[in-house]
Nucleic acid binder design. Structure first.
Lengths: 213, 213
DNA sequence: GGATAATTTGACCGAATGGTAAACTACAAC
DNA sequence: GTTGTAGTTTACCATTCGGTCAAATTATCC
């Protein structure tokens, strides 16, 4: 039978896991660069080093590959926010959240761009995830921030817009990398970029959220 | 002769101006939603309410439409930064810059997304513009910010990353609109969103850049 | 009103794209 | 070694897409 196409019914063989991983890596490379519609299965196949029908043996459609990628990325992408600790020191928590998000942008720019592409196009595949799990997590952490403000530990501010601003400033270095490089020039484009960004952003947010003396 | 295809040689007729504008509006709508590769000429033609060959009579290729759009958008997009006044009050200048950028994000989200799409895909069509005019303008304004810091009017900080952070936080409300709406829920999704964002961001940046007492 | 140029469209074309059919290979179980 | 199955590939198909062509239609100018 040809039915089992990378059979989900039985447990997966080692070769299946390897190939699927290989394909997802290639798909990430291509999707993040050209977007869902701009990417072609042939391109992914070439990057993955296998034939197009072989790809489609493991993932029945182009959309299935994209879906698998998005699911995986969305999960790891929210880890830093989950680590937000209500009992920690607010300044330290915020600073380390910024640093973690910047590290993600530096180490996984393709994942960030994949996600950005999806949102930009109106999140056609993950609207439910945004309104469900994502919203719940943000609501929870917003409450933490609000409690800090209520306890006089940080300035009173809108916690949602605070989170948005941390997301946007950090992801900017992955999503708009080309622009950042163009503006900074080759000189400063080295490894110092992320250190400079981290220093600036931590300073901005920590000072910006201080209680006025 | 059929040569003049929306003749650039002679001055344009009124009908040409109207149709070209009509086409660019439709192209903006489609490109900003689906990206360059995801957009099709047929879709643009349908939105514009004319036949495909008629579009191609005014713009010889899909890329020509995109190009015309990008050129126009890039220009208006930088206006707020140009308005940055070295002789003004730093706090007021930064606050009003943030407000202007937020107004752009609110009033011209399609333009913002068009630009974001282009950058995300590696800016294949406008790399020169980024490295040339954009970089020059940013360099000039960064020098202004540095002089403010040198004169003790604002805290010492990296002016480039300051500009990046203003860009990213403000454009976030256009480019990631779907996510913002999903997280905030319908309740708060009304017109207050931009007012709340403006208040938060102005507070963050003004306080974050104060000289410590 | 007629000549001329500008505009518009239906029909079409070649290339690319997502996906399929079917045959072939590798290999494990017996 | 036969057989059944997972894995792989060649050839192919239907559709879509960017773009062209020639003919038709509509302004414009005298």
């Amino acid at each position: 039978m040809t039915i089992p196409r990378a059979a989900r019914t039985q447990r997966r063989t080692r070769i299946q896991e390897e190939k699927e991983e290989q394909i997802l890596q290639a798909a990430l490379e291509v999707f993040s660069q050209r977007g869902f519609r701009g990417a072609t299965i042939d391109q992914i196949a070439e990057v993955a080093g296998m034939s197009k029908p072989n790809l489609l043996y493991y993932f029945r459609t182009k959309e299935a590959m994209h879906r698998a990628l998005i699911d995986r990325v969305l999960d790891t992408w929210l880890d830093p926010l989950r680590a937000f600790d209500a009992d920690g020191d607010p300044q330290a928590e915020i600073a380390s959240y910024i640093r973690r998000k910047l590290e993600l942008a530096r180490d996984f720019p393709r994942e960030s761009r994949l996600f950005a592409n999806e949102i930009l196009q109106g999140a056609p595949h993950i609207e439910e995830e945004l309104k469900g799990p994502l919203k719940s997590l943000v609501d929870e952490k917003a409450e933490v921030i609000r409690s800090w403000a209520g306890a006089g530990k940080i300035a009173d501010c809108d916690p949602y817009h605070l989170i948005f601003s941390i997301w946007s400033t950090t992801q900017h270095y992955a999503d708009f990398d080309v622009q950042v490089r163009a503006v900074l020039g080759q000189d400063q484009a080295g490894e110092s970029r992320f250190e400079d960004a981290a220093r600036f952003l931590e300073g901005l947010f920590v000072k910006g959220l201080e209680i006025r003396g």
